[in-house]
Computed example of a mutant assay.
Amino acid sequence: MVKVSRSLDFGNPGGCVLSLDYELLWGVYGSHTKETYGANILGVREAIPRLLELFERYKAGCSWATVGFLFYDNREELLASFPSIKPTFQNRRNCNYTFIDNIGADEKSDPYHFGFSLLRRIAETPQQEIATHTYSHYYCLEEQCDQAAFAADMDAAVTAAKRLCVTLESIVYPRNQVCPTTFDICRERGITVYRGAGRHWFDQPSARESESLGRRISRLSYSYLPLGRSGVVDVNHHDGMTDVPASRFLRPYSRRFPKATALQLEAIKRDMRRAAREGRIFHLWAHPHNFGVNVNENMDLWEAVLVEFAALRDQYGWPSLTMAEAAKASVQL
């Protein structure tokens, strides 16, 4: 399959950027298991096709940061793709190779670990970018980053993406652990765009063990509150890389606290309007598995965001951009 790039009129320096981290169970090991989080993972089978339908209906692009393991159909192909150099984390729960014995034979028998059919649907949908979430969901800040292991991981990610004729341009670091010492490795492989941390102190990259209760509470509170101009960001160029910073994390619908979901939506809309008026970037991100339960309510939430985007696009010429497109637009203007 050959991806055809669309022609864009970059008349507005800003735009609405969406990014989703496509991980399945590989993204939550260490904090969840199939038993504790399986419903969310299985719900991705419904959530992703419905998200793609919404994106196509509202002509919205999205960058799907995909764990490299998900480019394979079955256990045999996946095992054959493993790099010879693997992470050597002291805490083995930080390393997804630790959980390989958990996987089944293929996607039909094990929808928790395999998701190539969904990835094909993403690739076939207009305006979608397939980015990398590293090959193995590699954590760069949990322990000292092993440069050789990370380079091998990225080589495997590039090779995996070729199975869909995808040339990777963008990376989302797992747990948003942006690591400048890895930029040379990414750039040498043609990956020059990344999702940077938000503007607040509680969003700055850190290891999980450095996550204080105060940081977690502040981050949660911010999801539902408008804080100044915090959701409006600019693309930054440095060290041969382009940072498309995150604005807000989209939290799923809450049956217990529906008013909180309404507050979150209003905060998002407020930031989007400001970004559109000023010709700036608003970058919303999430994980598909966040929406794997309460799927109907979560799709209503997404549609409300996209309705707002479409109105702002029509009023201000504020476009939808993938991460790679946002990087290109910032250079051209």
Rank of each mutant, 00 (worst) to 15 (best):
Q204P: 04
S7P: 08
I85T: 14
P288I: 01
G68E: 09
R189H: 12
L52K: 00
P226N: 10
F82T: 06
E142Y: 02
D146A: 09
T134A: 01
F89T: 05
P13C: 12
P174F: 00
S212T: 15
G30F: 12
G15S: 09
A80D: 12
T192R: 11
I41K: 05
F249D: 00
P174G: 09
R216Q: 15
P174V: 00
G214M: 15
N96C: 05
A39W: 05
T181W: 05
S247Q: 02
S84N: 12
A148G: 11
N298D: 15
Y97D: 04
L306T: 10
E188S: 14
I48Y: 06
H289L: 01
R187C: 08
Y37D: 13
A275I: 13
L119K: 03
V44H: 05
S254V: 03
K162D: 08
A260H: 08
L54F: 10
D146Y: 06
H283I: 11
R274V: 14
P111F: 14
D21E: 04
I122N: 03
A65K: 00
L51Q: 12
Y194V: 06
A276D: 04
A260K: 11
S7D: 14
T132Y: 03
R219S: 08
F116H: 08
V232D: 04
K162L: 02
A324H: 02
V244W: 05
H283G: 10
C95Q: 01
L301M: 11
D110C: 14
N290W: 07
L18D: 00
T181E: 14
I281E: 00
F82E: 03
G228K: 07
